[in-house]
Design a binder for these strands. Structure first.
Lengths: 138, 138
DNA sequence: GCTTGACCTTCCCATGATGGCAAGGATGAA
DNA sequence: TTCATCCTTGCCATCATGGGAAGGTCAAGC
């Protein structure tokens, strides 16, 4: 199986597979006589594992550790769980950041007339934050 | 006022200020005889505006538009509001993505014993998603 | 005057994960 | 033979930022 078929079967792009190999996330594997990379069904399992981990947002460096644990029959599930909970914490941080931004902008947009006039609380706030408090009395 | 003082006063780094200038987000401005960039109080307002927009997660390309509207006395607040709502929508997309990932990992972690044994629902799921449904009957 | 340290300049490189493109080789079918 | 499709490697781009080198400038202290 060449890289194109492996890409299609795994859901990764050929580019990604080559990249993962180049950074040592995937082993270099065997080549056909013509220099083409060859993939076995076992390799496909690994590619799919990587894809699923990517879909959960794990960074490649963490996937490196996950792969290593996956292939280690002596692993302790505590190590896996720790990586998972760290990822949850990281995602929570990013979600909190984005949510804070989102709510701040949405609150400003609510107060903006959005008509043809130039007066705009959004620009006012960007210019001088806090000068137009949310609960102003007019 | 040199770039260091402008950076400190605006909350941006000197690196960022030079970068914003290099991509045309900020005007090139005047230089002192020694080649140093000089910043006025007016320039500081612009730098702060950019910083506040960055804190709300606006990409630099959008900030370019926001700056242009800010300085345009003929603007319509509708244009500003549109940019703001587009940013809210973008943030909502990203929050939804991250939340989906977060919940998926958290659900797996809940089912993982996290002890010294190798058995691990997290790795099982990465290997073959859906083979261990959340509501399994044991 | 000289040294020292803090500041400034430009330029290049790195991040993280991916896509795009180019130049060239391999394969297979019409 | 030609053409399409696949493969190879390598470089560049993204986005926003930091790091660091190499060198110029300035002000204070000796």
């Amino acid at each position: 199986m060449n890289i194109g078929a492996a890409a299609k079967a795994s859901g990764l792009s050929a580019k990604m597979i080559r990249h993962y190999e180049s950074i040592g996330l995937l082993p270099a594997g065997v080549r056909a006589d013509n220099g083409y990379r060859r993939y076995t069904a076992r390799d496909l399992d690994t590619l799919r594992f990587v894809r699923h981990a990517r879909e959960l947002g794990f960074p490649l460096e963490t996937i490196r550790d996950l792969l290593s644990l996956w292939q280690d029959q002596q692993r302790s599930s505590a190590d896996v769980k720790r990586l998972a909970l760290e990822q949850v914490a990281e995602l929570d941080r990013r979600i909190a950041d984005l949510t804070r931004m989102r709510d701040a902008i949405a609150a400003l947009a609510l107060r903006c007339h959005g008509d043809a006039r130039p007066e705009c609380p959004i620009l006012n706030e960007l210019q001088a934050p806090g000068h137009e408090p949310k609960g102003c009395s007019h």
